[in-house]
């Protein structure tokens, strides 16, 4: 069995909604091996986004521990987490979340502002990332001048530019037509197979899940993530 990149042990996450407590994740154990490409499916409200947030250090579990790549997230301070995210995690969102005031190139350079690279090095690395996603010729375009699929490619370039080991994708093709979605999914497959990225992808689309190595199902809002048949 491959080395484990992410390990959740007895993780629960409870939200306080007014007086009511909603337990979104209950005593969850999960291991994600390095190099895996996991799809997570499940009904709305079942806690998929919550799980991604926990894996990416954006949220903290109510109880349990989370290790990612040797770091114990549950033992880190907020500012440690924020620094850790910048080098270890790439996030890809359903609505791309590019900054509209920056060009594609500058959007991709954003995470590198947190490094000690010179502006020349930043530009070079961003150019390489844009080349990997096939958008080298759109570097100077602003997000509003790009199609949805192109915007998502820029977002992927931004997610991989600081060479993180884990990519967390929340419905990355949820806003795209079939054909464009397939292109994006193929790109993710390449990142997984050729660039060795471990990917956790939340999706509602069974066809999208086909691109992954395996699919986990989140059920009933609480409790378990189990292997698909």
């Amino acid at each position: 069995m491959a080395e484990v990149l992410a390990r959740l042990e007895g993780v629960s996450r409870t939200y306080q909604k007014g007086k009511e407590k909603v337990e979104v994740l209950h005593n969850l154990d999960l291991q994600i091996p390095t190099g895996d490409f996991v799809a997570i499916m499940g009904p709305s409200g079942s806690g998929k986004t919550t799980l991604l947030n926990l894996l990416g250090g954006l949220d903290r579990p109510t109880s349990g521990t989370i290790h990612v790549g040797g770091a114990e997230l549950t033992a880190m301070s907020n500012s440690q987490l924020s620094h850790w995210r910048s080098t270890n995690i790439g996030f890809i969102f359903q609505f791309y979340n590019l900054l509209p005031v920056l060009t594609a190139q500058k959007n991709v350079e954003l995470p590198l502002l947190l490094t000690s690279f010179s502006s020349k090095e930043r530009a070079e690395r961003a150019a390489i990332a844009l080349d990997i996603v096939g958008l080298a010729d759109r570097a100077r375009h602003y997000p509003r001048e790009l199609s949805g699929g192109q915007e998502q490619r820029v977002a992927i370039a931004r997610a991989i530019v600081s060479d993180p080991s884990l990519l967390l994708c929340d419905e990355p093709t949820g806003d795209l037509d079939r054909e464009t979605a397939d292109e994006i999914l193929k790109l993710m497959q390449i990142l997984n197979r050729e660039h060795g990225k471990t990917i956790v992808m939340v999706t509602h689309d069974a066809q999208a899940a086909q691109y992954a190595n395996r699919t986990l199902h989140c059920d009933k809002g609480t409790l378990e993530a189990r292997e698909a048949a």
């Binding site: 924020s82 620094h83 995210r85 910048s86």
Partner: peptide, 14 residues
């Protein structure tokens, strides 16, 4: 708001 949240997600400190 969402852009600022994205910056923080990318690792920009508070």
């Amino acid at each position: 708001i969402s852009e600022l949240a994205v910056l923080k997600t990318l690792g920009f400190s508070d």
